[in-house]
């Protein structure tokens, strides 16, 4: 396989982790979040700053990212108790923008658009994880592990109660289910997994800057993957991630010049999303059909 194909597989894997992590929040807990890239950015920058500036080992950077993301996720879950979907979307949108703008403008910490380079390559048992070598195995191993964990969550009583809160918060309360517990857990788990994806990205690229895809377009893209694949369906969101992340690569294979390919990509995303919402609102593999 050539480098392009492997890169495509790797980046699809990172998108799949992001989509799976958002699926916990949107699919299981029913919190409409379009600020998910914030957690991705937190992971990437934690790894970059910890490793490059402080010389910490990669696992420590990842851990710091996960803790930070978990804390912020918990904070964001508080308004989700009081706000309706549309207002909550605005809140998460604002949160995503705050984190993105912080990454761009807090130059003394993040170097802003100039970026941080020299992020060390990951090593597994002292074998370096290279793009063509271990990287696809590592990333997809993480995808399958995460998918397995989510499957366990989905089929546990805890997950069932989380979905009960999603479907009808008031009824869940009347049966003794305390919504904040489930929303907070979903937000924390989703944030940590997204942060982990960000750390993987940082080590994979070895250079990140504020324009490496931590803004609204990434949040919307992940959200689209979840909706396209089918919220609440593990297989669905992974398929959604593969499909949508493959679109730009496929266009490139056709040899279209960038000036044509870029707008065409947007058009294809738009058409795909409209088609899904109209013809298959539950997503490609989703089961969640009901809409009030």
């Amino acid at each position: 396989m050539d480098l392009h194909t492997v890169e495509m597989i790797n980046s699809a894997g990172i998108w799949a982790i992001l989509a799976l992590s958002l699926n916990v929040i949107v699919g299981y807990a029913g919190i409409a979040s379009i600020g998910h890239a914030a957690f991705y950015a937190i992971g990437a920058y934690s790894s970059a700053i910890m490793c490059v500036r402080l010389g910490a080992p990669p696992w420590l950077g990842m851990a710091v990212g996960c803790v930070l993301a978990a804390g912020l996720g918990a904070l964001i879950s508080i308004p989700s108790l009081r706000l309706r979907d549309d207002y909550l979307m605005l809140t998460t949108l604002g949160f995503g923008e705050i984190v993105y703008l912080t990454c761009r403008n807090w130059e003394s910490l993040t170097n802003g658009p100039r970026g941080i380079g020299g992020i060390p390559t990951l090593r597994v048992l002292s074998v370096p994880v290279t793009e063509m070598g271990l990287m696809p195995w590592l990333i997809w191993g993480c995808v399958f592990t995460l998918a397995g964990l989510l499957w366990a969550l989905e089929h546990s009583p805890f997950g069932r109660q989380m979905m009960a809160v999603r479907d009808n918060e008031i009824a869940a309360m009347s049966l003794g289910v305390r919504p904040i517990l489930y929303k907070l857990t979903a937000m924390v788990v989703g944030a940590m997994a997204a942060s982990f994806a960000g750390s993987l990205l940082a080590h994979k690229l070895s250079f990140i800057d504020s324009e490496a895809g931590f803004g609204l377009s990434t949040s919307v893209m992940v959200f689209a993957m979840v909706i396209l694949g089918g919220r609440g369906s593990i297989m669905g969101v992974v398929a959604g991630a593969i499909l949508l992340s493959a679109v730009p690569e496929v266009l490139r294979r056709f040899g279209l010049p960038l000036a044509t390919a870029a707008p065409l990509r947007q058009i294809i995303f738009g058409i795909l999303l409209v088609a899904i919402v109209v013809f298959r609102p539950q997503g490609l593999f989703g089961k969640l059909k009901f809409r009030e």
Partner: peptide, 24 residues
């Protein structure tokens, strides 16, 4: 409500407008 429903001699209720977990 969740505390009332969860504690031992608890209270549960149904609703005039039916509230189910539609996707479950």
């Amino acid at each position: 409500p969740h505390r009332l429903a969860r504690q031992h001699p608890g209270i549960t209720r149904s609703f005039q407008e039916i509230r189910l977990f539609e996707e479950l």
